[in-house]
Design a protein around this nucleic acid. Sequence first.
RNA 1: GUCUUGUUAGCUCAGCUGGUAGAGCACGUCACUUUUAAUGAUGUGGCCGAUGGUUCGAAUCCAUCACAGGACACCA
Length: 504
Amino acid sequence: MAFENKFVQLRIEKAETLRDAGINPYCNNSKRNTTIKKYLNVNSDIEHKENKRDEHRHYTVAGRIKLLRVMGKASFLQLEDESGVLQIYVARDHLPENFYNDIFKKNVEVGDIIEVGGYPFVTGQGELSLHASEFKLLTKSIAPLPEKFHGITDKETRYRKRYLDLIMNADVRKTFQIRSKVISLTRRFFEDKGFLEVETPMMHPIAGGANAKPFVTHHNALGIDRFLRIAPELYLKRLIVGGFEAVFEINRNFRNEGMDATHNPEFTSIEFYWAYKTYKDLIEITKEYFLYLFDHLDLPTHLPYGDLEIDFNKFSEVPLIESLHTIGEVPSEIVNDKEKILEFLKSKNISVKNGLSLGQLQGELFDEFVEHKLINPTFITEYPVEISPLARRSDVNPDITERFELFIAGREIANAFSELNDPVDQYERFKSQVESKECGDDEAHAMDEDFIEALSYGMAPTAGQGIGIDRLVMLLTNEHSIRDVLLFPAMKPIHHEELNQEEV
RNA sequence: GUCUUGUUAGCUCAGCUGGUAGAGCACGUCACUUUUAAUGAUGUGGCCGAUGGUUCGAAUCCAUCACAGGACACCA
């Protein structure tokens, strides 16, 4: 039951006591006239003043009480708002008669949201504080906060009750401020380049644009199932057909797959499409984008990530086949021979599905021996055509595509290619995907005839790219779980025992 | 999905090879007008994640389940 906890009961009683004394414990006419950060800035000169105070200044701040130290007729409390922390000095004789003893000491406690007016002064210990002459309770907190020193560390509680995590852990707030900036800077970067931000459907009749299992939902009015999108790609390309020459979308994708440190069922990406460009141009704009982010986030281009050091001045470019040998140390004589690759994988005790093509096997080799070694930003280029169903073939080698993926700290951050705009080739690729699907690959593409028809009208030569925003934020904030860069990561619902008993 | 480690007070954690539950913080009461996790005294607080089993006796041993962390598999 709600409110049954004895600490909660006690605090509800305090709220009632306040009401009886004519004080609204949920009062909303706040007169706050400055933030704590501004208060600290504007009063930084106080320590040079006579008596280290200025009784002619008056400010009203508001926030949550994080610490409370009562010493008889005076108290110190630490007040926190979004901008910072301020020490408040509350003395009995500077407040209305009896307020300090009867109201403040008995009914105000850590967690409450209050408003305090007074003048700036510096304490004997040298801390710029506020000397209170007005005190108003704005919101009574009836649930006790976690312990003041250790805060809240239990990961499950932190993710399920993110509000508590945010109250207790300032660095968590910082992470999400950075996330917000990354998204806003990304938007600004592409807008400044002349890209148009668009919104395409989240509910698709066919889940396309990536290899992944979709979530299914049902549209009652039409009596049909819809798929939550796994990627916006095919819709964004329809817009290029329609004549937009540079578009981008920042939004959620949904994939019905496992959850772990780098996967959440819903995740955020930016996809952008740029007509009359190739994947080579995308490599350049990607480098520019990263420098732009580092510059505007005020981050050094040499970043620690766990035990790793990432140098964002060192972008390199390696064709996939070449990387197998030079980085993955796979013998170069086997990488173009299906049988030899299978033999090699077997000798390394790595099992793969039956019936994989050469390109797919090369992909396996890459995942197994190369990916985790790519620490500094590396563009892996020239992907086999079999694992790139939407990418344009290379003019010099029809087995490979004009594609790259960007890897940083051993993880894929971006995927990009010159887009396949030959409708007949695209039709054939879909057909071979459908065959894979029929052979049991439930992540293979479905046929999208409407998309083929769109391509048939002619899509200008275009290059397109997707960047995983969550993983990017992880890199920039030195976080190692995607849950730490998502405000509300996916969690299993908790079974309530009472419900079970009712059912039985 | 598999393996593995957890789950004890509002929070952070002890609790040994089974013998009716412990600390700190928080909270209550008292003292204290310059503290910094304030301090001193004193007190309240628990279905030991859930269900079964073994046992005279289970927080502790066993099984099943739930949730979480980590690793692996699939994927971005």
